[in-house]
């Protein structure tokens, strides 16, 4: 009986050590990936580490209130993407806007920096925030906008 208990404890200790090693390796890998596995760069990250002109890059952030405007050609929109640290990137995009694309909400843009320093997007994706609010409660917009900004801070 004591021998059986011993074997059992031995296995427990072995498995626990193995688990610690695996979890450690996993966390280390995830930590190493924390700057590489980002789906997009925030404006602040882009300002700190500017990509080369013409290099494909993905930008994510919040569409600044009041910045959205249609250019004279009637096809191209221009807007400003911002983040919690108030860093901004000017964006130009010609194409169909996603349904959820509104000022004050999140956006992810695929594109590249043009020679004039403006980010030219080929594709826009709307980023939904984690708030789920019925239409009847639209008054919460500003509050949820603040929260969206807050969540954009993650990973920065």
């Amino acid at each position: 009986m004591t021998a059986a208990l011993k074997a059992k404890h031995q296995r427990l200790i072995l498995v626990v050590i193995a688990l610690f090693v695996i979890i450690g390796a996993g966390l280390l890998a995830a930590y190493g990936l924390r700057n590489e596995a980002n789906y997009f760069y925030l404006p602040g990250q882009m300002a700190a580490n500017p990509p080369e002109v013409g290099q494909p890059v993905r930008l994510g952030g919040m569409v600044q209130e009041g910045s959205l405007s249609m250019l004279d050609d009637g096809l191209t929109v221009s807007f400003v993407v911002t983040d919690k640290e108030q860093a901004t990137v000017d964006v130009r995009y010609s194409g169909i806007l996603p349904d959820l694309f509104v000022e004050g909400s999140g956006v992810v843009a695929d594109g590249r920096i043009a020679p004039d320093g403006v980010f030219v997007a080929d594709q826009l994706l709307a980023k939904h925030d984690e708030n789920y609010v019925p239409r009847e409660l639209q008054g919460m917009d500003q509050h949820s906008a603040d929260q969206t900004l807050e969540t954009l801070e993650t990973g920065a």
Binding site: Y39, N131, Y132
Partner: peptide, 13 residues
């Protein structure tokens, strides 16, 4: 994943 990295998926609600 949605906390460590910038992701298109929304953070935990």
């Amino acid at each position: 994943s949605v906390v460590w990295w910038n992701s298109l998926h929304q953070p935990p609600s």
